[in-house]
């Protein structure tokens, strides 16, 4: 089949970008979307043009590197699928598609379709962990965990940090991402000691990074390639409310006072 692609080309963060039209013939339905772009890039290189830059690595939907907008939808039209696993059988001959980077103040464009998502790392660094040093913790089975809790925790933990939730959100909010980590750890006994602190610190960092607020559109949930649920945001709100209301300053050292 033959496709027409309108691709956002932007040389660097400081230069303005624009849409450029490409004709892509000879697309096989068995190709993945990225393989189709590979084919285009090979042609561009041979013509002496700059190939289209897009982020990708594992190409099996788990590393979270890839992702851009196809016709205004993060990762394209197939639900629950990253763009590397989206196959061309989903499109038909003659389709005209618009490819754009995920857009948000917190995700500056680096080049073409490739963006900087380091804001996500900083949010995790603010509290998305259990503070346990490497060493000799107790035996793994000494902490029984209800199967359903472990399963729900796993559901939340399957977030790949691709940023589709931010891209889809009309407010460019990252609540689904943050709430997934808060739920992953908050649903497990290991996550309890830091639960309040985690909610306060991660949300404070979220705000630092200039993501928007949640207005419960639900676009993030629909766009998430891993099916992370809005329920997590409710859980995060609950954690935050409890933490904000019950917070007290840390007692100073000494204890005698």
């Amino acid at each position: 089949m033959r496709l027409t692609l309108n691709i956002w080309r932007q040389k660097s963060a400081n230069e303005p970008g624009k849409m450029v039209k490409y004709d892509v013939p000879g697309v096989s339905e068995h190709m993945s979307f990225l393989e189709m772009l590979d084919v285009l890039n090979q042609r561009l290189i041979k013509q002496g043009d700059d190939p289209v830059v897009f982020e990708h690595d594992c190409r099996e939907g788990i590393c979270g590197c890839c992702g851009f907008m196809i016709d205004g939808v993060p990762h394209g039209p197939q639900r629950g699928t990253t763009v590397c696993q989206l196959h061309m059988r989903y499109f038909k001959d003659g389709d005209e598609l618009y490819l754009e980077p995920f857009r948000a103040e917190a995700f500056p464009v680096v080049k073409d379709l490739l963006i900087d998502r380091s804001a996500f790392d900083r949010i995790i660094a603010a509290g998305g962990y259990v503070s346990v040093n490497t060493g000799s913790p107790q035996d793994a089975n000494s902490l029984p965990i209800m199967k359903q809790c472990a399963d729900m925790s796993m559901d939340a933990a399957s977030c790949i940090g691709c940023g589709a939730c931010v891209a889809a959100c009309p407010n460019a909010s990252a609540m689904l991402f943050v709430s997934a980590k808060i739920s992953h750890l908050g649903l497990l006994p290991q996550g309890q000691p830091e639960r309040d602190r985690r909610a306060l610190r991660m949300l404070a960092q979220l705000q630092e990074e200039a993501f928007g607020a949640c207005t419960n559109y639900g676009e993030c949930e629909a766009a998430c390639p891993k099916g992370i649920k809005l329920e997590n945001i409710a859980r995060m709100n609950r954690d935050y409310l409890k933490a904000a209301l019950s917070y007290r300053e840390e007692a100073s050292a000494g204890g005698a006072a």
């Binding site: 962990y129 259990v130 490497t134 913790p137 793994a140 029984p144 199967k147 399963d151 497990l188 290991q190």
Partner: peptide
């Protein structure tokens, strides 16, 4: 054996049985 203990302590959501064990 230490690896599993360490990972569980970090909050890795390994699959569990109904009794709560791994």
């Amino acid at each position: 054996v230490n690896i599993i203990d360490q990972c569980v302590a970090q909050g890795v959501p390994f699959a569990r049985e109904y009794g709560g064990t791994l």
